[in-house]
Design a protein around this nucleic acid. Sequence first.
RNA 1: GCCCUGGUAGCUCAGCCUGGAUAGAGCAUUAGCCUUCUAAGCUAAGGGUCGCAGGUUCAAAUCCUGUCCGGGGCGCCA
Length: 560
Amino acid sequence: MKEIIIQILKKSGITLKDSEIEKLIEVPPSSDFGDYSFPCFILSKKEKKSPDKIAEHLTEKIKLPGEIEKVESKGPYLNFFVNKKILAEQIIKINSNFGKSPIGKNKKIVIDFSAPNIGKPMHIGHIRSTILGDSLMRIYSFLGYDSIGVNYLGDIGLHIGKLIVAYELWLDKDALKKNPVQELLRLYVKFCAKEKSKLTEGVEEEFQDNEWTNRAKEKLKLLELGDKNTEKIWHDIRKSSEKGFNKVYEMLNVDFNETVGQSEFSEHGKKIVTNALLKNIARSEKDGAVYVEIDRQKKFILRSNQTASYITYDIGAAVERYKKYNFEKMIYVTDFRQKDHFDKLFKILKLFGYDFSDKLVHLPFGTIRFGKEIIATRTGDIILLEDVLKKTIEKAEKEIRKRKTKGDAEKVGVGAVKYVVLKSSPSADVQFSWEQALNFEGDSGPYIQYSYARASSIIKKAGKFNKSKIKILNLTPAENNLVKKISMFPEIVINSEQSLNPGLIANYSFELAQIFNEFYHTCPVIGDKSEAFRLLLVDAFRTTIKNSLYLLGIEVAEEM
RNA sequence: GCCCUGGUAGCUCAGCCUGGAUAGAGCAUUAGCCUUCUAAGCUAAGGGUCGCAGGUUCAAAUCCUGUCCGGGGCGCCA
């Protein structure tokens, strides 16, 4: 539609380039002002006439094609009114592919997301990476990309050593079988409590020298040396943890193409570091620690005891993944606190001669706050993700019972949680509260699902109808708005991919649902003289809302 | 100290990239609407120095500089 307006303006003798015109065209604040507008300030400067006069003059000069109903000058603005009948004809023809695009054809995107730590339960803090990453996967696939989701499990580190110590001392086998997540958490919390009294304040964990921390370090060393018994416990812990993770992933309907432990890249990483050392790109300290200079600062990439550190694994993992997938882009979805880490990782890879480092992107997201509490696994002070989901599903059940309908409580509850997480832009912190998560009214997932269910109900009640008899009468304002909003969906999807922000789709879905509800309120469908057209419009709405919620990982229900 | 973030209605946020018309939603508050396709809905009202101060511009919540307040990161934790 924009294209058409650019052509009209060009024909009217404007001395601006296409791209300049496109930049200037905007959507007016109110639909009373039209659908698109063109401000004349720049022309006013060029032609040294008042912008109001230029706008007025242009209205007289312009010749309108069928797609544009009328053009009006209002002050310094030239306002275009789109012929909604023509737009409506296009909209009622959309199918389930609406919004899809081939722009990603033959391109691979790897998305690294979720990445929980083995031995710790998934809590409200993990929800963001998981849901954001999953939504990005869906968006990329929708746009034709081959998207590959990788779950990079934190299966190594001092917390593992602690857990192994606790496992040997206090494990309750039956409890582990019954509820692996709870039992592992109990072990971890117990260890931390024991350790706490011995900790020296102000000293980093790594350099703590006390009975408990030392035992954990020892276990970690044994694990690295390949001690059979320790390895067995480690495997047990991973297996039990994964059971817990999978339960949550199932509830969330999140899949990965690959689940891999961080520790598997230890050797790859070390080899790359050794090579860099040989080529003199990296240097070593007297005590054997290896570093590179990044931004005039030393960044250590191998510890003095020759074991890998976080970044060593990530170097190995990135290189291996590029070999495996030859991706167009790889996105790491993690907490914003790791921004520096990833910036440095990318620079190090570049320094080492891996040009694919330009294809790496870090998508940082803000903290989830729950009231004023700080979430701490070590004290067991956490809100389990599983509990959040269960609680919202319960609330959905209650609502459904109240209404005596046939809704799907799981879809509604999970949708509510996902929506809360996705609607704010990734960079912002999210204030999580039960009040908000359990609110199913207004700007919420259930509100959107509800509007879909209402639409479905109309379609169901109408039964079969004759599609060939469609006659589009003059559209009411509510119909106009709905047609216009639906037509914007494809653009929104592309914007949200480019800005890596599913929140745009979330906002759009809500606005679309709002507009539909207004339509629902003012335009009766069944029995109306525009029944056939309205049925098709309602169906187009269903398709659009279904697609946009799908991109957020939220399912629709025909009834609720 | 250096770097990264955020500050918009009582609360939660959108708008900022790419400057334009009266700064938008939701929650909460108040007042209406269920003999008509699901009231998880709709309509209306009140509520704003867009942290503060400069600058650029015909035009600044939006761009630039400074400043205050909150959060975070800063040589071998993940």
